[in-house]
């Protein structure tokens, strides 16, 4: 009778029992997620579907997978994609050096084994009688995908920046993602012990094939709205004062409206908040912002482009922060 492949759901039923539950767990792990993210994780987890996470760089795509692994208490297996990535680097590789070394060591043994055989056919048969030792798991170098399929207690598999990989590799992924099994010519088909929870991230540098998209849930993580960003910031940089946090968020939200080469995302906001904290800033002012703007913006042209707007942005951030305090007091 064929053995049934278990899935993560069978093992961790308690952890992700409802969408609310997922949100609470993520929040406890300092990842503030929207309803959409929680719903997506809930469906992925229950229906064992991979999630294709898209969105601009730095909005927490990779972090989502990391946090999921952390909450479930399972290892995170990460496969970073790049141009030229192939099966040998993603799935498995034979340990050639070890094979060579063993053949050298076993040379004498081979002589003993073949003793007494009169012709080639005899010798061949004697060798065939031995197990195919050199192409067994002992000589196999497992790579991320193989490791993910072999985890005893399941895992979260993160296939990062899948858009950077080649078309050939994308086609190869199809088998892994739909059946959670791979074929190794020398060993046969290898099935997942526990189906992992898979996240694929993409920065949209190229269009992925329909076949791959069809197998995945599609999650687009946009830049967070003001309220969400403020919550994320208070979870990630709790030492930051309320006033400064509101100012930072308002300032960053305004900068995102400009036409920039690289719009700052949430990870840059966090870095900037940490920088301001380090400089003991109590509120935003022109001098501090100018000094630290390179943490937020990564291109010289972008920094120049914001130059004229800085004063206005800072003033607006101050006002917003005051209004918030007023409304809270009220």
């Amino acid at each position: 009778m064929p053995t049934r492949t278990h899935c993560m759901k069978d093992l961790y039923q308690e952890t992700f029992s409802s969408i609310e539950d997922i949100k609470a767990h993520f929040e406890a792990a300092n990842y503030i997620c929207s309803d959409q993210i929680a719903t997506c994780v809930y469906i992925a987890y229950n229906l064992q579907k991979p999630v294709m996470v898209e969105g601009p760089a730095g909005v927490g795509k990779t972090e989502l997978a990391k946090t999921t692994a952390e909450i479930l208490g399972v290892p995170l297996v990460r496969l970073q994609c790049y141009e030229g990535l192939d099966e040998a680097k993603a799935l498995y590789e034979w340990k050639y050096a070890k094979q060579l070394l063993y053949t050298q060591l076993l040379k004498d043994k081979l002589g003993e084994l073949l003793e007494g055989s009169n012709n080639f056919t005899d010798s061949m048969e004697k060798i065939h009688d031995q197990e195919d030792l050199f192409f067994s798991e002992n000589f196999l170098e497992p790579r991320p995908l193989y490791k993910a399929l072999h985890q005893e207690h399941g895992c979260v598999l993160l296939i990062d920046e899948v858009d950077k990989s080649d078309h050939e590799f994308e086609a190869f992924l199809l088998e892994v993602l739909s059946d959670f099994q791979v074929s190794i010519p020398e060993l046969g088909t290898i099935k997942a012990k526990i189906k992992p929870l898979v996240f694929l991230t993409s920065n949209n540098s190229r269009e992925m094939s329909d076949a791959l998209k069809r197998r995945c849930l599609h999650l687009y993580v946009p830049y967070p709205e003001e309220k969400l960003e403020s919550r994320i910031l208070s979870a990630r940089v709790p030492e930051l004062s309320d006033t400064l946090r509101r100012e930072v968020v308002s300032f960053v939200q305004q900068i995102r409206e400009l036409d920039l080469k690289k719009v700052p995302s949430i990870s840059e906001t966090i870095d900037w908040a940490k920088t301001l904290l380090l400089l003991h800033a109590s509120e935003l002012n022109s001098a501090t912002v100018k000094q630290t703007l390179n943490v937020l913006l990564k291109f010289e042209t972008d920094i120049e482009a914001t130059g004229d707007h800085l004063r206005g942005f800072i003033e607006k951030a101050h006002q917003k922060s005051k209004i918030n305090i007023g409304s809270k007091a009220g």
Partner: peptide, 22 residues
């Protein structure tokens, strides 16, 4: 799986399952 009770969750469930791009 998610049910019809919550409108916004129903919407998210339909979106993540049907959409292939932004």
């Amino acid at each position: 799986l998610v049910g019809y009770q919550n409108r916004s969750i129903l919407k998210h469930a339909l979106t993540v399952s049907l959409a292939k791009s932004l």
